[in-house]
Amino acid sequence: MLNSIFTESIKIKSLVVLTALLLAVQTSVNAQRPLPSLTPAQAQHLSRDLVPYNSQDFFRQGKDSIERETQILRQRQLRSIKPVLKIDLVPQIKIPQTQQNPNILSK
């Protein structure tokens, strides 16, 4: 019985050592794999996407604001194409008040 326990213990230890060895070999193979090379522009774009800066937010908000203001001005311009004041080209003749109400003179 003692012999079977000893044999089981050796089998378990060898299995653990083998597993650790395989993991170590796999990790070293993965570490030796070359990383994909990025151009400086790609690296800058990637870092910009990962970490947004406050200045980027500031300029994005400013751009959005300008676009909204431009749209508002264009809408106002389209509405103001119609003339605001109508001009009647036929001259109006003013009649003096005395001629409008003849009773004023008779008093």
Rank of each mutant, 00 (worst) to 15 (best):
F58R: 14
I81F: 03
D88C: 03
V16M: 11
D57H: 11
I93G: 02
V16K: 14
T7N: 11
Q71H: 13
Y53I: 13
Q56R: 12
R74L: 13
F59S: 06
Q75K: 10
P36Y: 01
V90E: 11
Q42I: 02
N103R: 12
A43D: 10
K94T: 06
D64F: 08
Q26M: 12
R33W: 00
F59Q: 06
S55I: 12
Q99R: 09
L18F: 07
I12N: 05
Q61W: 02
A20C: 11
V90M: 08
T27S: 15
T27E: 12
A31H: 08
I72P: 03
P83G: 01
Q99Y: 09
Q32K: 11
S55E: 11
L35H: 04
P34L: 01
N103F: 13
K13A: 11
R79S: 10
Q77K: 14
A24C: 10
P52S: 04
P102E: 00
L105P: 02
K13G: 03
Q99F: 09
L85W: 00
A43F: 07
T7G: 06
L22P: 02
L89P: 01
P96A: 02
S47E: 12
P36S: 04
L15K: 10
I72R: 15
I12W: 03
L85R: 05
S65R: 13
V25L: 14
S9G: 07
Q77M: 08
H45K: 15
L15I: 05
L23A: 07
N54H: 10
K63L: 07
K82H: 02
Q92W: 04
K13S: 08
Q77W: 09
V16F: 06
E69M: 12
L38C: 04
T7A: 14
L89Q: 08
S14Q: 07
P83T: 04
L73I: 12
R33I: 01
T7S: 14
S47W: 09
G62S: 06
A31S: 13
I10T: 09
V51M: 07
N103M: 14
S47T: 15
S37E: 05
